[in-house]
């Protein structure tokens, strides 16, 4: 090499370390306080949901006829409801359902939405027309009606079928947004460059398109978590999904809403846990978004925080 003048006097950085984007994003993710806090809260919620039943001798379904609508006390930590069932036992049981349903529905619908939307936008032509038609079709179908018709047939399949069903009717609008975002990204030069390098189309979608729409996807997914818990409630209210005597946070809230002014313990414990859950998911989502977006300074680890101008 001859005398080459580098354009800038960049500070000599430390020794090169291989690893690429994944490692960088992970290191930024772990450096973000919000993610740590959010992650801890979610972890604690899971511990409560699955460990809770073992620390109380009350069962969520068995009534205690000696204590009807009792406020929280030493025997019934969260009080009891009108049937004498222990609210703590019910809440942790409901939390189990809602945590899983909320997370999985959001995950499934986001994955489906991003894949369908990105493929439709990226490939265009017949693939686009076919997928857009499917999306439009699902959007005009009354999803509630279909779930009503299908769910009796899925009785035996349990909650996982319910999750799939909820997710299946929850992704279309996101997919449409992703499609239009992809269409503009497709014209960008870095996507062109990848095409000319011979990168496989699916790889371009995963490596270039999706990370560039990640901010929207993450925001959408965090909203979807709360939405899934609530739509599960609506279905449960009509007798689909989670059925009595089984409970979810949604059914507990639905049952406790009108009694909240008089018997607050029936409502506020379930509501508080739901709010805490959604809040924690939001914290994680924000952290993830910042970690994926290199232009945000907040989540950058201190050692690379200096930008070279």
């Amino acid at each position: 090499m001859t005398t080459l003048i580098t354009e800038a006097t960049l500070p000599a950085a430390e020794a090169p370390a291989p690893g690429g984007r994944l490692r960088l994003v992970l290191s930024r993710l772990t450096a973000a306080k919000g993610v740590l806090v959010g992650g801890t809260i979610v972890l604690l919620l899971f511990l409560l949901a699955f460990g809770g039943p073992f620390i109380t001798h009350w069962d969520y379904a068995t009534p205690d006829y000696s204590a009807l609508r009792q406020p929280p006390s030493g025997t019934h930590w969260f009080g009891t409801n009108g049937l004498g069932q222990d609210v703590f036992a019910q809440t942790v049981r409901g939390l189990q359902k809602s945590l899983i349903i909320g997370l999985l529905v959001a995950l499934f619908s986001t994955v489906v939405a991003s894949l369908v939307g990105a493929c439709a936008g990226y490939f265009g032509g017949w693939i686009d027309r076919g997928l857009t038609f499917l999306v439009d079709l699902l959007l005009v179908f009354p999803s509630f009606l279909i779930i009503t018709i299908i769910s009796p047939k899925l009785k035996g399949a349990g909650w996982i079928a319910f999750v799939v069903l909820l997710a299946a009717f929850n992704w279309m609008i996101t997919a449409r947004v992703i499609r239009s975002m992809t269409r503009s990204l497709r014209e960008r030069e870095f996507v062109r460059a990848a095409q000319f390098m011979g990168v496989h189309p699916l790889r371009i979608i995963v490596r270039h398109i999706l990370p560039n729409v990640a901010s929207f996807l993450i925001t959408d997914a965090t909203v979807a978590v709360g939405g899934a818990v609530m739509s599960e409630t609506a279905l449960s209210y009509f007798g689909f999904g989670v059925r009595a005597p089984d409970v979810s946070l949604g059914t507990l809230l639905a049952a406790g809403t009108d009694q909240a002014p008089v018997f607050p313990w029936l409502f506020y414990f379930a509501a508080g846990l739901l709010v805490l859950f959604v809040l924690a998911i939001n914290l994680i989502g924000d952290g993830l978004r910042d970690a994926l977006d290199p232009t945000t300074e907040a989540a950058r680890p201190a050692r690379t925080s200096r930008s070279s101008k």
């Binding site: 690429g20 960008r188 030069e189 870095f190 990168v199 270039h208 990370p211 560039n212 977006d293 290199p294």
Partner: peptide, 22 residues
């Protein structure tokens, strides 16, 4: 346009590795 032709979300090590991966 050197800004448009580099994926803003990819560290440049990965950017340079891309054709090799392909």
């Amino acid at each position: 346009d050197p800004m448009a032709s580099l994926d803003p979300r990819l560290p440049i090590g990965d950017v340079i590795a891309e054709p090799l991966l392909a």
